[in-house]
């Protein structure tokens, strides 16, 4: 990994590898819990006691006995289940935490995108493994949805790269000192949020785990495996919120308060936005979304990239 970028210290270099990895893991867990807790609060409409429900069900899942299906492909199934949270952790590795990332490469944004794309394989395997109709259908749906959102997601990340003149996450944050990217890239921001919900198959994009396919990719999961997948999903959504904060909302920049507090406030704000909007909408069927993604979102994000490129050439971001 090239740390050779001038004077940029990763959190691993600054605090030691083990504490830095631990930090990322703890942040991932907290983000996952945060997403699940906010979601519970909004869905149940009950008081603050409801927000502890995800913890309780997490503990219950750990103790639960695993069910299995007839003739599953156990190797691939387990691999898929384990990959979901690991990929969430890895995508969080390039999100600046306290001003530093665990990994810093010259292509952080592409790394984030690559982790999300490996999630395709992981979720497909979670659907494939149990050898069951509903789970397999969920797997198919995830890929269809992936084909719809992948290009808009890439273009929105590239737009950020154009604005920052770098694909390194810390450079992206630094480039927003004077102006948050969300102001000149509203389309990219909205598309990023929507696609984040899509790759965590959550909210209106939850059809891979939809009730109409009896839970889809989740339908045959139980015990620790269910916990891993649910945790990974929530952590992915949290990581996406943290990434949206870094890429569009100026990261940890803000007056009066210390940086990490600002970053936390913004990230929690994005999570609440996710839940409030996501839970108010019914699930969007993949066959409807695919046409809109290709006919509307791709041209829109390309146009957004063009606008930002012209602004960048004219020295707007300098």
């Amino acid at each position: 990994m090239s740390d050779s970028g001038a004077g940029i210290a990763t959190s691993a270099a600054a605090w030691g590898l083990a504490p830095a990895v631990l930090l990322v893991a703890v942040v991932a867990l907290l983000l996952a819990f945060g997403v699940a807790a906010v979601d519970r609060l909004v869905v149940s409409g009950a008081g603050s006691r409801a927000m502890w429900e995800p913890l309780r069900s997490g503990v219950r899942l750990m103790a639960e006995e695993r069910r299995t299906t007839l003739a599953p492909d156990s190797l691939l199934w387990r691999l898929g289940c384990a990959s979901v949270p690991v990929l969430a952790l890895l995508s969080l590795a390039v999100v600046p935490l306290g001003g530093r990332t665990l990994l810093s490469t010259s292509a952080d944004l592409v790394w984030f995108n690559a982790m999300e794309s490996i999630l395709w394989a992981a979720v497909w395997l979670v659907g494939w493994g149990p050898n069951a109709v509903h789970a397999l259908t969920g797997g198919y749906r995830f890929l269809i949805q992936g084909l719809s959102y992948e290009l808009p997601l890439m273009f929105s990340l590239i737009t950020v790269g154009i604005g920052a003149q770098s694909l390194r996450a810390t450079d992206v944050v630094a480039a927003q000192e004077s102006l948050w990217f969300v102001l000149t890239m509203p389309v990219a921001f909205a598309v990023f949020l929507a696609t984040a919900a899509a790759f965590a198959f959550w909210g209106p994009f939850a059809s891979p785990a939809g009730v109409d396919v009896a839970g889809g990719v989740r339908s045959e999961l139980s015990g620790v495996e269910r916990l891993l997948v649910e945790l990974g999903r929530a952590a992915f959504l949290g990581a996406a919120a943290a990434m949206a904060t870094a890429a569009f909302l100026g990261g940890d920049a803000g007056p009066w308060l210390p940086g990490p507090v600002w970053q936390l406030v913004k990230t929690v704000g994005v999570v609440v936005l996710f839940v409030l909007i996501g839970r108010r909408l019914p699930v969007v069927r993949p066959e409807r979304f695919v046409e809109v993604a290709w006919m509307v979102l791709i041209p829109l994000t390309l146009l957004q990239a063009l606008v930002v490129a012209v602004l960048s050439l004219s020295g707007f971001y300098a």
Partner: peptide, 11 residues
């Protein structure tokens, strides 16, 4: 609404 994936409204 359950089938349509709108648990909040179904609730």
């Amino acid at each position: 609404l359950d089938v349509a994936g709108w648990p909040l409204a179904a609730h």
